[in-house]
Amino acid sequence: MELDARGLKCPLPILRTKKALASMQSGGQLRVLADDPAAQKDIEAFCRQTGHELLEVQDGPGEGVQTFVLRCR
């Protein structure tokens, strides 16, 4: 599943991520695209607090965009 959170500012990327993960089965993967500079710190903290696993962080696609891959707990 993919969530495009580009153009959204804190806290919306995390709120949308939380909603997407809630609709997924355990072990499913969610790919999140975000361009909010705080997104990496926020997603890392969200995963620590909720038990979801942050599998990967990559730059791109595009300038200022990061891709996060999470595994649903």
Rank of each mutant, 00 (worst) to 15 (best):
Met1His: 14
Glu2Val: 13
Glu2Asn: 15
Glu2Cys: 12
Leu3Cys: 02
Ala5Pro: 04
Ala5Lys: 04
Gly7Glu: 02
Lys9Pro: 01
Lys9Asn: 05
Lys9His: 05
Cys10Glu: 07
Cys10Met: 13
Pro11Lys: 05
Pro11Glu: 04
Leu12Phe: 05
Leu12Pro: 02
Pro13Gln: 08
Pro13Val: 06
Pro13Cys: 10
Ile14Met: 01
Ile14Ala: 05
Leu15Trp: 09
Leu15Cys: 03
Arg16Thr: 11
Arg16Ser: 12
Thr17Cys: 02
Lys18Ser: 07
Lys18Asn: 05
Lys19Phe: 05
Lys19Gly: 07
Lys19Val: 04
Lys19Asp: 11
Lys19Cys: 03
Ala20Thr: 04
Leu21Pro: 00
Ala22Ile: 04
Met24Phe: 03
Met24Lys: 04
Gln25Ala: 13
Gln25Trp: 08
Gln25Lys: 11
Ser26Met: 08
Ser26Leu: 09
Gln29Pro: 04
Leu30Arg: 00
Val32Ala: 00
Val32Leu: 00
Leu33Val: 04
Ala34Asp: 00
Ala34Thr: 02
Asp36Ile: 01
Pro37Ile: 01
Ala38Thr: 12
Ala38Glu: 13
Ala38Pro: 05
Ala39Gln: 00
Ala39Pro: 01
Ala39Thr: 01
Gln40Trp: 05
Asp42His: 15
Asp42Leu: 13
Asp42Arg: 15
Glu44Phe: 15
Cys47Asp: 02
Cys47Pro: 03
Arg48Pro: 14
Arg48Tyr: 13
Thr50Lys: 03
Gly51Phe: 11
Glu53Trp: 02
Glu53Gly: 00
Leu54Met: 09
Glu56Leu: 15
Glu56Trp: 11
Glu56Ile: 06
Val57Ala: 11
Asp59Val: 11
Asp59Ala: 12
Asp59Ile: 12
Gly60Glu: 14
Val65Asp: 07
Gln66Trp: 11
Gln66Val: 09
Thr67Gln: 14
Thr67Lys: 12
Thr67Trp: 01
Phe68Thr: 00
Phe68Asp: 00
Val69Lys: 05
Leu70Phe: 02
Leu70Ile: 12
Arg71Asn: 04
Cys72Ile: 02
Cys72His: 10
Cys72Glu: 06
Arg73Thr: 14
